[in-house]
Design a protein around this nucleic acid. Structure first.
Length: 492
RNA sequence: GGCGGCAUGGCCAAGUGGUAAGGCAGAGGACUGCAAAUCCUUUAUCCCCGGUUCGAAUCCGGGUGCCGCCUCCA
């Protein structure tokens, strides 16, 4: 490897060379969803980031075991179920199904395992028993608490100090305000399981420790999740796992930044400012969302606004357009010779195309910098378009452009972008955008035919009037030498 | 109050020592029956003040502002 793979590690607050426990193999655990509602575009960022990360690691020939859990037993689920008079486990199962539908529509791959709390109770109980046995947990009134004061390392991930925590909840039976529940004694109406401490259910944090251990072992390579989980959730996972297993828990902690609103606030269910993935995908192609996420570094806050998806779709259309131009070059002459005949613009495409893979990989190998990697693709696209303006080049430069086409394919494989044919992309955009604008496609077709007839008759006034009408519908007409093309306005 | 992070052109944004990628928007131009797309040109005292260095957006100190977490949250 010409350069090491580097990752920012929340634990050390530094970018480090990544070296997995077992050479060539990566064990990755990502905190998934607590399933009591539809996922919104903020959740989707985390899903897309880690899906793409796994995709890239595999592209780079790492063998990856990717585990992403569902928390399907939890206070919020129980509360929601109570509100609508439903069974908590059934409610969670329903939202797991919605989740699977949404991530499939987003174009994400499936993790290698998707453990759930409700089917991991044995592992959870076992881990709690170990914690009790080792003196890190205590029983009180049918519940079991983790004793934070018994773990010297408490706070090492988040940098929190026990005596500086603002207002950890005082609860009867807790020794220290920051102690947290491993097992909660049964209450009427809640799902319960038997345990050595009586009937009850797991606390919030223990499931991830137990499921990570069950699927990946005591020490995992990378643990991921949203930045808002660092404290207390991940801090508590560290405590549970390291005290229960007597081993270092996660070697690298990867946290994605949150979506922020124009106001600067994050998008969150509790703030009531969410956009569901389902709704976004009705109006925009999945790849537009993907590009929107990947054009920013995964650790940065990502601003959401009305322009976010239209802008991303515009960028994506630009890339598809450039790839189409690249595909339209002909000729199989020796590339070097064509370059020397055609001059600078051809030389640029040849050079950028050939250098692409190295530059692309270098960006992604440096803390997964998708923003920088994509910038290279845009640079290449401009060079292709520039060359495409020369008629001579269109006939002869096929071999010169070949490496550029490989670059687009590479981006598809490594990042999951540009994976459709131009035709499929174009049709997806048109159908989703026309639907979003409430325009009947057959009306567009009719107007286009009428306009073509008017143009054939050189009735420019009529043609322009129809263009105006189409524009009013959100349809932009583009006359080209080889026929009429059209696009739908990207904004709602 | 504590912990952590961030401040780059009109907007979004990459960039951890050698005078600033990329995208969006704006202006002018080429192309076009007119347009669109595309291309060309064009916009940066890198929050402020000190310091280290031959040299800093990049390192150190101080200040200001914003965000996240400390309660559920991807």
């Amino acid at each position: 490897m010409p350069h090491p793979f580097r990752l920012y590690n929340t634990l050390s607050r530094q970018t480090e060379d990544f070296e997995p426990l077992r050479p060539g193999h990566v064990g990755l655990y990502v905190c998934g969803m607590t399933v009591y509602d539809h996922i919104h575009v903020g959740h989707a960022r985390a899903m897309v980031v880690f899906d793409t990360f796994v995709r890239y690691l595999r592209h780079r020939d790492w063998e990856v075991t990717f585990v992403r859990n569902f928390t399907d037993v939890d206070d919020k689920i129980i509360r929601r179920a109570g509100e609508i008079g439903d069974d908590p486990v059934a409610l969670a199962a329903r939202y797991i199904a919605y989740f699977h539908r949404d991530v499939a529509n987003l174009g994400l791959g499936m993790p290698d395992a998707e453990p759930r709390v409700s089917t991991s109770i044995d592992a959870i109980v076992e881990l709690i028993e170990a914690l009790v046995r080792r003196g890190y947990a205590y029983q009180s009134e049918g519940s079991v608490w983790f004793a934070v004061e018994n773990f010297d390392g408490y706070g090492k991930l988040s940098g929190q100090k026990l005596d500086e925590l603002r207002s950890a909840e005082e609860m009867p039976g807790k020794r220290h305000p920051a102690d947290f529940a491993l097992w909660k004694a049964a209450k009427p109406g809640e799902p319960t399981w038997p345990s050595p401490w009586g009937d009850g259910r797991p606390g919030w944090h223990i499931e991830c420790s137990a499921m990570a251990k069950a699927s990946l072992g005591d020490t995992i390579d990378i643990h991921g999740g949203g930045l808002d989980l660092v404290f207390p959730h991940h801090e508590n996972e560290v405590a549970q796992s390291e005290c229960g297993n007597g081993a270092h828990f996660a070697r690298y902690w990867m946290h994605n930044g949150l979506l922020t609103m124009a106001s600067g606030q994050k998008m969150g269910k509790s703030l009531g400012n969410v956009i569901n993935v389902h709704d976004a995908l009705d109006r925009f192609p999945a790849e537009a969302l993907r590009l929107y996420y990947l054009q920013n570094h995964y650790r940065s806050p990502l601003p959401w606004g009305d322009e976010a998806l239209p802008d991303a779709l515009g960028m994506l259309a630009r890339l598809y357009e450039a790839r189409e131009v690249a595909e339209s070059f002909g000729g199989e002459e020796d590339a070097e010779r064509v370059v020397s005949d055609l001059g600078e613009d051809a030389a640029t495409v040849w050079k950028l195309g050939n250098a692409f893979a190295d530059r692309f990989h270098e960006a992604l190998d440096t803390d997964f910098n998708t923003a920088a990697a994509l910038a290279h693709l845009f640079e290449l696209s401009r060079a292709i378009n520039r060359l495409g303006n020369h008629k001579k080049a269109k006939k002869r430069a096929g071999s010169v452009v070949a490496p550029a086409l490989t670059a687009f394919a590479l981006c598809g494989k490594a990042l999951g972008l540009m994976n459709q044919t131009s035709l499929a992309f174009d049709e997806e955009v048109k159908s989703k955008r026309l639907a979003a604008l409430g325009v009947d496609p057959s009306r567009v077709d009719g107007l286009l035919e009428e306009r073509t007839a008017a143009r054939a008759a050189k009735d420019w006034a009529r043609a322009d009037a129809i263009r105006e009408e189409l524009d009013g519908l959100g349809v932009v007409v583009m006359d080209a030498a080889d026929g009429v093309r059209w696009r739908v306005r990207l904004h709602d």
